[in-house]
Simulated scan of single mutants.
Amino acid sequence: MPELPEVETVCRGLAPYLVGARIDNVTLSAHRLRFEYPQGFVQSLIGRTITAVRRRAKYIIAELDSDQSAIIHLGMSGRITLVGDGQALSFDSYLYQTGEKAKHDHVKLDLSKDGKTFQLVYNDPRRFGLWDIAQKADIDTSKHFAHLGPEPLASDFNGKKLLAQIGKKAAPIKLALLNQEIVVGLGNIYVCEALFMSHIHPERPANSLSVKEADLLVESSKNILLRAIEQGGSTLRDFQHADGNLGGFQNHFLAYDCEGKDCTTPECNGKITRIVQGGRSTFFCPECQK
């Protein structure tokens, strides 16, 4: 599943093309996604202009020139590409080059901008993604966002705020950081990396962290996310950019998927170990993560 850096990368890639584009037509496949499209979905989009593209957690939000916004989640295998006959809009059509079938195209937007026409194609073989419409004034309290915790990259997110979110929860810190009600969007890869950088054992009770440890963990989380965004995210199986290029951060993992490799921490003789927590693989160094 695309995590925060991957979704942020998609948003940044799409924004220059989508902002200012008018939605001339909407075509839906005969298959539903994770949820049914809301009533009036197509009518809410046709004729509207996209005024902004932003991210909240792992969701893409396309603001419209109305009182509504479109909400998109890529699920496990959702991908967005732009297809057009103009050079400026020639995103690589990776969906088709990599063998994905057009039958998995579930949402198509016919767009026009600056006298040119192009198409946004949402392809999702597993159909775990979603498209929805929400009132701008109510978006933070909508069913998608009301339960979500703070953004890890927010300027006011620090160790004190993380500890406040954790409260008395004694769950392993690895699982606590994957809880979207505590903090959003970190995901399995980046939690493993942040805990490694902070030298915090993934099985530590979340409520056992000191303020100093929490501050270090938040700082490490921000650093790892920003580095991943710079690299365009991590490509493991399904994720690719809107332009078809692969993310590159997987080439810089320090712990994730590094089982058996020497720990890179100076003066540590440990090796990266893999355990399973909550059905997810956790990679860490048992020597220097305490």
Score class of each variant (00 low, 15 high):
7 V>I: 14
15 A>E: 15
15 A>P: 11
16 P>H: 03
18 L>E: 02
19 V>E: 04
19 V>R: 07
21 A>Q: 09
21 A>N: 10
24 D>V: 04
25 N>C: 12
39 Q>M: 06
40 G>R: 07
41 F>W: 05
45 L>G: 01
45 L>W: 01
48 R>C: 13
49 T>Q: 15
50 I>C: 01
52 A>G: 12
56 R>N: 10
57 A>N: 09
67 D>R: 15
68 Q>G: 03
71 I>V: 15
75 G>S: 04
75 G>D: 08
82 L>P: 14
88 A>Q: 14
88 A>F: 07
90 S>L: 06
102 A>P: 08
108 K>F: 04
112 S>Y: 06
113 K>Q: 14
113 K>I: 09
117 T>E: 11
125 P>Q: 13
125 P>L: 14
129 G>L: 10
133 I>M: 14
141 T>M: 00
148 L>T: 08
149 G>M: 02
150 P>I: 00
150 P>N: 04
161 K>D: 00
161 K>P: 01
163 L>R: 15
163 L>A: 05
163 L>H: 10
165 Q>G: 11
169 K>R: 15
174 K>Y: 08
175 L>F: 00
177 L>S: 05
180 Q>A: 04
184 V>M: 10
190 Y>D: 00
192 C>E: 04
192 C>A: 04
193 E>V: 02
194 A>W: 03
197 M>Y: 14
199 H>Q: 14
201 H>K: 07
203 E>Q: 12
203 E>A: 08
205 P>E: 03
206 A>W: 02
217 L>D: 07
217 L>K: 10
220 S>G: 02
224 I>F: 07
225 L>M: 11
226 L>K: 14
228 A>P: 09
229 I>E: 01
234 S>I: 06
234 S>R: 01
235 T>F: 02
240 Q>G: 03
241 H>S: 13
241 H>D: 05
243 D>A: 07
244 G>H: 13
246 L>S: 12
247 G>L: 13
252 H>C: 04
254 L>M: 00
254 L>H: 09
254 L>W: 06
266 P>R: 14
270 G>I: 12
276 V>R: 13
277 Q>H: 15
278 G>V: 06
282 T>G: 05
285 C>K: 04
286 P>W: 07
287 E>P: 09
288 C>H: 09
288 C>A: 02
290 K>Y: 14
